[in-house]
Design a protein around this nucleic acid. Structure first.
Length: 287
DNA sequence: ATCCGATGTCAAT
DNA sequence: TTGACCTCGGATC
């Protein structure tokens, strides 16, 4: 579910609604009882997003690191959190205190007096020391959503690599936060064929990719959805913006295997690249 | 009601 | 390169 924009939205939600509060932590499902106990009753001091990883900093030099992976999600309840994470569902059952019962296998519940965040299905979830947190963030490539990110680090790797730019963009140690959809859409918008070796990109091409990544990811944070099509390239009558936009109007190439390219009409191509589906337009994108 | 695929990563092979 | 993880939305019946 998440590329970097989702993680940044989540971190912002924690900053707005949980930071500054003493939190009760528990593991309804039981698999994270030890970690929950470590931060239970501690005040939350910070929430940070680095690429696809989120860090919650608690009193006592404790950092909770969460990576949602493919299935992980946060489900919130409390004021001001509509549209962040999965919906609680109005039919959610409540306990005698009016709090929503954990839905499904909730690995970690963080609760203030007013808000609840339920984490389920993360690929990683653990308590780390400041040193471990620093090591984890150091291993993440520049994140286009982070002020001060240094794209030169990514360029150094890309410009020296014979690996395809399609694969390089997916590597979190090259650029943090890009996933399969942004990868495909960025390369389409830059008109770069995904199999082009990284070292064959010009600096200008890389700079354009980086600028577009910043713009698209920021839009993603704003919209809560990945929408990369320019208005003039959407099907006529595509009504709404943002999260409510029809799925089939949101992307140029992602998930559009066999459908006509919005620019030239050529059927969109798809193949497996390093185990992930890669989509591109064989005509618009050139090596 | 049921099936399938998914915006990710890692370990095992 | 493949399977495991583990949950949901959306498509299909």
């Amino acid at each position: 579910m998440p590329e970097g924009h989702v993680v940044h939205r989540l971190a912002a939600a924690f900053t707005d609604h949980f930071v500054g509060h003493v939190l009760a932590a528990s593991s309804p499902q039981g698999r994270f009882a030890e970690g929950a106990a470590a931060v239970d009753g501690h005040r939350l001091l910070a929430a940070e997003a680095w690429g696809k990883q989120m860090f919650l900093g608690f009193e006592g030099d404790l950092w909770l690191r969460v990576h949602l992976g493919m299935y992980g999600m946060w489900r919130f309840s409390g004021p001001g959190l509509a549209g962040i994470g999965r919906r609680t569902g109005k039919e959610a059952e409540q306990d005698e205190d009016g709090r929503p019962l954990p839905r499904g296998a909730v690995r970690l519940r963080l609760a203030s007096n007013t808000h609840i965040g339920d984490l389920s299905g993360p690929t990683f979830c653990g308590i780390e020391t400041p040193a471990e947190k620093a090591a984890a963030t150091a291993a993440i490539g520049p994140d286009p959503l982070r002020p001060g990110a240094r794209p030169g680090r990514a360029w150094d790797i890309i410009s020296a690599s014979k690996m395809s730019i399609g694969q390089l963009l997916m590597r979190q140690n090259v650029i943090g936060g890009i996933g399969n959809i942004y990868r495909a859409e960025l390369l389409f918008r830059a008109r770069i064929e995904p199999h082009k070796p990284g070292r064959d990109l010009t600096r200008a091409q890389f700079d354009a990719l980086w600028r577009d990544a910043r713009a698209l990811l920021r839009d993603g944070v704003r919209d809560g959805a990945i929408i990369t099509t320019r208005p003039q390239d959407r099907p006529a009558g595509t009504p709404v913006v943002g999260r409510r936009m029809r799925r089939d109007a949101r992307s140029y190439v992602a998930f559009r295997n066999g459908e006509p390219c919005r620019i030239c009409g050529t059927p969109i191509a798809m193949e497996l690249m390093a185990g992930r589906k890669l989509y591109w337009c064989p005509t618009c994108q050139i090596r």
